[in-house]
């Protein structure tokens, strides 16, 4: 058993891949609680896809692909806000229009430079085992920044997430905080690109937090639980991908999906036997 756990760690790329995925999963878990409760999943997915335009453009121009991804994600977030605020366009429509447009731009760019295609596909589906020491450093810095900002603004962000009208009325800068959340979402998505890929990053944001939501009664418990669930999914997922020789990003996501259904099933069982004492859904009253 122990040698099975230690064997992959003999390789530098496995150590880095493991560290990077655990880091990314924890940051996604922390931010994911806001994503789940504020119903930002679609916007998160959109920012991830939009960032591909930036990745492709930066790659072709020889610039930093993460910077490209981040600029595109942020511009898309602002564009969605602007389009849906004063146009006659609904926000989900604005999201649909912008993200498919920027994603298509990325596809057009990479299809025009064929020989780079395989490299760029790593960003689409994730390639955590090719992460370099420099990538790892960048991911750690970005992840730390997100966690620190979430911690600093935790109470304000929670107030605005729960009750934006009252927060604004009592003098909390609700607008600025909503933009901060979108900015953090952009940073997190870019940091997660290499670990799980553009197509799957939204799952890492949503699934662990959705699982935590099933059994947590308070928001900070939900954040800690989804960080833990994300971390566990990353660890198990990476080992599975090593021994089964399957794609690491998809393997992480599948583990977290399995955990979600296990908790959902366990919940249903416990409720039937009357043992469940928490969770956000109706049907339970202690008074």
């Amino acid at each position: 058993m122990v040698e099975h756990l230690l064997e992959p760690l003999g390789y530098g790329f496995m150590q880095r891949g493991l560290l990077a995925s655990v880091l990314v999963a924890m940051v996604c878990g922390a931010l994911g609680s806001f994503v789940v409760l504020k119903r930002l999943a679609f916007i998160g997915d959109a920012l991830a896809h939009a960032s591909f335009g930036g990745v492709a453009l930066a790659f072709v121009l020889g610039l930093n692909v993460y910077a490209g991804a981040f600029v595109f994600a942020l511009a898309t977030a602002l564009g969605i806000g602007a389009l849906s605020q004063h146009g006659k366009v609904r926000s989900d429509t604005a999201i649909g229009v912008l993200f498919s447009g920027t994603f298509a731009l990325g596809i057009v760019i990479i299809s025009s430079v064929e020989n780079y295609t395989t490299d760029l596909f790593g960003y689409l589906f994730g390639d955590v085992l090719s992460i370099t020491a420099r990538d790892l450093l960048a991911i750690s810095l970005a992840g730390t920044a997100v966690i620190v900002l979430l911690g600093l603004f935790y109470r304000q962000l929670l107030f605005v997430a729960f009750d934006p009208a009252v927060a604004a009325a009592s003098g909390v800068p609700a607008r600025a905080l909503e933009y901060l959340l979108l900015g953090l979402l952009g940073v997190t998505i870019v940091a997660a690109l290499q670990a799980v890929g553009i197509v799957l990053v939204v799952a890492l944001l949503v699934t662990p937090s959705a699982t935590a939501y099933l059994f947590c009664r308070r928001f900070h418990h939900m954040i800690l639980a989804s960080m833990g669930i994300g971390c566990l999914s990353a660890l198990v997922g990476i080992y599975l991908s090593y021994y089964l020789n399957v794609a690491s990003g998809a393997s992480i996501i599948l583990v977290s999906t399995a955990l979600f259904f296990v908790v959902l099933g366990g919940r249903a069982l416990l409720r039937r036997t009357g043992g469940w004492r928490s969770g956000p859904f109706r049907g339970y009253h202690s008074a």
Binding site: Q156, L158, F159, D163, S170, F219, H221
Partner: peptide, 14 residues
């Protein structure tokens, strides 16, 4: 939303 009565009232102090 997963917040307790205490959490909600504490928001008044934010």
């Amino acid at each position: 939303f997963p917040v307790s009565a205490f959490d909600v009232v504490m928001m008044g102090r934010v």
